[in-house]
Amino acid sequence: MTAAMIELDDGAHLRTWTTGSVVPQRYPVVMVHGGPGVPDYLAPVAGIIDDLCLVHRYDQRGTGGSSWEGEHTIVRHVHDLSLSLDAWGHDRVVLVGHSFGTNMASYFLLAHPERVAGLIQIAGPFLDPWREADRAAQRARRTGEQQARLEELDAIESRTDTEEIEYLTVSWLTDHADRTRARDWALASACTLRPINYAMNAQLNAAKKADPLESHVDELREHLPPGAVIIGGAGDSRPAGALRRLGTRLNCEVIIVPNAGHNPWLEAPDQFGATLRAAVERQTRRAGNRPRPRPPLERRGSRSETTPSP
């Protein structure tokens, strides 16, 4: 693995990691993590595919080891990713987004379709209406005591480090379908993904609401690269049905992994790994080496239509 800092045009720096190796007949992969406001956590996902191609990851501006200064806009973060591709020396890449990273990858596709050779979206993007179903699932997955404690911690203006870890753990334990391990996974994330950039979170969520992807679905469908796929977890608190609806609107394959939550590599590593590798092998092939895309009706009849939903 190679770690490096990329200097951007405004003097900010992004912390990056590169694994795998250059394969002449394949496009590189760039992973876009979620949040917003947490550092990169996709190393385990990169490890599933970096024997196939070159894989880049980075801490988004405002997180982890990257620069924290300045305001956060969709335009700025899209520009950061474009400058990163330049720094890595890539004209075109396959984007792999997770959670809020699927939104960022979608906005990048809208701004720079010529630079996106492939698109793999994991656990997103979720377009309205979906929030009420998510809130209901979260409430069902927390005990009354946990919900009360979450509200108590949320009301604290300046939490101690111990309180912050507890707050994040109770917040994130609903992401996982395996209720016996959910708290342990959430606690591990809470201990490693701090500090949270709450200002960045608020600014980017506001920017997403001001320019919602819902208003760009037709344009997204027009620019969607061949073979693009959305991968979700049947046990995510966020409704798999919302991903299926988006897939229908985009004419994009949707694969829902049974027994998996918001981070499907944790709960269904074999099935998720096989699904991701197949998508990467298909989409990273350069022009002339790709198989012909399946007709739209066949994609709509894929196994994603029969897999269980939450």
Rank of each mutant, 00 (worst) to 15 (best):
Q271E: 15
E166V: 01
T160V: 02
H33E: 12
E151Q: 13
Q271R: 14
L297P: 04
L204K: 15
E163A: 02
T18H: 04
R61Y: 01
D86N: 08
L153Q: 07
R282P: 03
V23H: 12
H223F: 07
S171N: 11
H216W: 10
S237F: 10
A140I: 06
I74H: 08
H13E: 13
L83F: 08
A111M: 09
A137C: 07
A3H: 13
D50H: 03
S171I: 06
Q60E: 03
S82F: 04
I49N: 00
A202H: 13
H262Q: 08
V30F: 04
Q138R: 12
R294L: 13
I231F: 03
C252T: 02
I120Y: 01
P226K: 07
V75E: 12
H13N: 12
M5A: 11
P264W: 00
T2M: 13
V280Q: 07
A3C: 13
T248Y: 10
C191Q: 14
L187E: 12
I156M: 04
V22C: 04
T162S: 13
W68F: 11
L173I: 03
D86M: 00
L83W: 04
V38Y: 03
E253M: 11
A140F: 09
G288Q: 07
A117Q: 00
G247V: 09
N259H: 10
D161S: 14
A117C: 06
S99Q: 09
S237M: 12
I6M: 07
Q121P: 15
L276Y: 05
N251C: 09
A148V: 06
A279D: 03
F100T: 08
Q271Y: 11
D128Q: 11
S99W: 01
A137Q: 09
A260R: 05
P264S: 04
H216N: 06
L110A: 11
P258G: 02
L83T: 15
I74F: 11
G233R: 05
A260Y: 03
N251R: 11
